[in-house]
Simulated scan of single mutants.
Amino acid sequence: MKVARFYAPGDVRLEDVAEPVAGPREVRIRVRNCSTCGTDVKILNNGHPNLSPPRVMGHEISGEVVEVGAEVAAAGYGDWAAGDRVQVIAAVPCGDCRQCRKGRMAVCENQTSVGYQYEGGFAEYLVVPEQVLKVDGLNRLPEGLGFAEASVAEPLACVLNGQRLAGVGPGDVVVIVGAGPIGCLHVRLARARGAARVVLADMQPDRLRMAADLVKPDDTIDVSSVDLVEEVLRLTDGAGADVVITAAASGAAQEQALRAVARGGRVSFFGGLPKDKPVIAVDSNLVHYRELTIVGANGSSPADNAEALRLIATGEVPVSDLITHTLPLDRVLDAFGIVARGEAIKVTIEP
């Protein structure tokens, strides 16, 4: 079978390898879709400290079961059978640490990941490891949900976790900084959670227009030509937004968010910053006197993935139109280039 395997920064190879075989407590799936994300491009260019090369990349995965280990059912890992249509979580909690026992699996102390410590989904077949099954991380697709849409459940699960932590709810004015696929999902989910007004901002006018044409925010802010804080205040009659979500790797955006949010508002640092520039300036008195809340958002839990699938299947958060490019596995490097250049919202690979 064909795989896309990372060896070192700048060295991702398309290779022919033997098909994997499921162990007694594993499930093998045929990968139908594995969507790309900005993290894949970062791995291609810089590697990742948690990724052990050589490693098959790809972590936004859907497919169908082709082989079930003999001990899977007896171990309590589910009643799976060949032909079952499934989605696989990316971030894999241990299920045993203090955070997992408290129900905070997104910040598991011993988290591993598909495509990092385990082989990923840019392959024709994938063995779902026991650790994924142990934490209920293999999800059955709802009837009528396509594989391509299901592959977007993983990033939507992260967005769901982030908005829950930020308390996005009915009547809120929500500003989302970053018009990539994550930003688009934030717009759609904020609507589903009852936000009264959703504003999308980006510093790349072409990407902002492309995203806005699809997700239809109430307002857009082209940060390349206007000041984000001034424009948010103008749009809100000086009050500021109830929630500002920085879905971009920008320290400047995080600093601006604290000045663009209303009294008693919430700021979500959703996008992580470059490892060599992780520090920003925070006006502590602004946080203190306005009673602001700053929350982080790191990933998602298995339960978030299941809920994301439900939201997609019911149409509460549509995603099919966000998949702007579909490519075969032998063009995965082309897909990374499209993502890096900002020419797409979501690119999915069909092995």
Rank of each mutant, 00 (worst) to 15 (best):
L309P: 06
S300W: 11
V279K: 15
D79I: 00
P217C: 09
K346D: 05
D276C: 11
L165N: 07
L160R: 04
C100I: 00
N33A: 13
N305H: 15
K277H: 15
L322R: 05
P129R: 01
V199T: 10
V31P: 14
T39L: 06
Y7F: 14
A4Q: 06
R207W: 12
I182N: 01
V244I: 05
Q256P: 05
A18H: 03
G180Q: 02
P53H: 00
M57V: 10
Q204Y: 11
G265C: 12
A212M: 08
L258T: 14
A335N: 00
E255F: 01
P93E: 07
E130L: 06
T220H: 07
I176T: 12
L133C: 11
P20S: 02
P54L: 05
E130H: 13
G271F: 09
L273N: 11
N46Y: 14
L160D: 03
G115A: 06
I294S: 13
L185S: 07
N305Q: 14
Q163M: 09
R259D: 13
R85I: 01
I61Y: 02
V175I: 06
G47K: 09
D16Y: 02
R5E: 07
A262W: 10
A253W: 02
A8M: 01
V229T: 14
V199M: 09
T236H: 09
Q87T: 15
T293F: 12
V295T: 14
D84G: 07
D206I: 09
I323A: 02
I176H: 08
R30P: 07
G169I: 02
V132T: 13
A90V: 00
R207D: 04
V132K: 12
G146F: 00
P20R: 02
V319T: 13
P53K: 11
G299Q: 04
